[in-house]
């Protein structure tokens, strides 16, 4: 075998040659391995016979621009995911079923310099895509609770605020704080504190609607962004969350304990039209909930507090 043929066969890259009528003229071992089609099976046949989706404009643009203009063309993973569907050969297959591919193509000219066929290269970039997903996730999520972290939450809130302002729809935020959290840490240790935070985070996540966004704002402080929700409905949700947390029994080793939350509600309004003002209004309402005895909901606009008796400490140790 010629040196070039050996490289063609053994390189860790998918290589194929298509003629002007899309018939397969070459197909290396990498292609055979990942497509489960041998060269003998595809040779001389139209690629569309095996991959009919290549009749779509995205591929014809790629193919024809090389054929007509003789240029070097790209088919990017970020825009198209993959050119030829192949099973993801990596352990990441559980998350990403198909191999992610970056592809290039260029002309092959005959002795008269006319373009007779085109070559296509397929590079497996699945692992890079995995790392990229992980990085994006790490930059957006709080590692302990898997809720949005503060900076991403603020970004989402400001996008939702612009959307609400553009379409004239209501928007509310809840600021939520676990009552007497410090004493949980002091009494049972930080492992128990973390467990309580995770439990409340899950409760919030599981209770809000799909379009709502929950983030961890600080240590034991959470924030919910509620698009298309006026303060009256936001208060109802806050009340529901407050009641659920109050009912929930946390088990930690031989101990069982209960915690409560205080909530501040604020709705987007003309006087409260920046992220800072809206968050401050919800924070002020939260502060009033705390000040009035905790385990309650206070709404910034209506100055209404929930009709629940204050309990000096709802931390019930057993």
């Amino acid at each position: 075998m010629q040196a070039h043929d050996q490289i063609f066969q053994n390189i860790n890259l998918g290589l194929m040659v298509l003629d002007r009528d899309l018939r397969v003229r070459a197909w290396n071992r990498w292609m055979e391995l990942h497509s489960s089609l041998s060269f003998a099976e595809v040779e001389g046949k139209s690629i569309l016979q095996f991959y009919p989706h290549l009749a779509q404009p995205e591929f014809s643009r790629f193919f024809k621009s090389v054929l007509s203009f003789g240029n070097y063309a790209f088919f990017s993973q970020k825009l198209h995911r993959q050119l030829i569907p192949m099973k993801n050969p990596h352990p990441s297959v559980a998350h990403i079923p198909y191999m992610q591919q970056n592809c290039t193509a260029g002309p092959i000219r005959n002795d008269q310099r006319a373009i007779e066929s085109i070559y296509i290269t397929i590079q497996d970039v699945t692992e890079y895509v995995m790392y990229e997903h992980r990085l994006v996730e790490m930059s957006r999520l709080d590692p302990m609770t898997r809720l949005l972290n503060r900076s991403h939450l603020e970004q989402t809130l400001s996008e939702e605020m612009s959307r609400a302002q553009r379409y004239g729809t209501p928007l509310s935020v809840l600021m939520i704080d676990i009552d007497f959290f410090k004493s949980i840490n002091d009494t049972y240790g930080h492992v128990c504190g973390d467990q309580v935070i995770k439990a409340i985070a899950n409760l919030l996540k599981d209770t809000v609607r799909r379009i709502d966004v929950v983030g961890r704002y600080g240590g034991e402080e959470f924030c919910c962004v509620l698009p298309e929700t006026a303060s009256d409905n936001a208060v109802l949700l806050a009340e529901r969350l407050r009641g659920m947390v109050e009912e929930k029994v946390h088990t930690f080793g031989a101990h069982t304990l209960k915690v409560t939350i205080s909530v501040g509600v604020a709705e987007l309004s003309p006087g409260r039209d920046t992220l800072e003002r809206l968050v401050n209004a919800a924070d002020d309402a939260l502060y009033r909930s705390k000040h009035q005895g905790r385990n309650r909901v206070t709404c910034a606009a209506l100055e209404e507090s929930a009709p629940h008796p204050a309990s000096a400490s709802s931390l019930l140790a057993n």
């Binding site: 643009r61 621009s65 007509s68 203009f69 003789g70 240029n71 070097y72 063309a73 790209f74 088919f75 990017s76 970020k78 825009l79």
Partner: peptide, 18 residues
Amino acid sequence: RESLIEISNIIIGACISK
């Protein structure tokens, strides 16, 4: 960015090749 690269590549190819 990705779509600009893809489209630019085609436009440049068309102009230069002609």
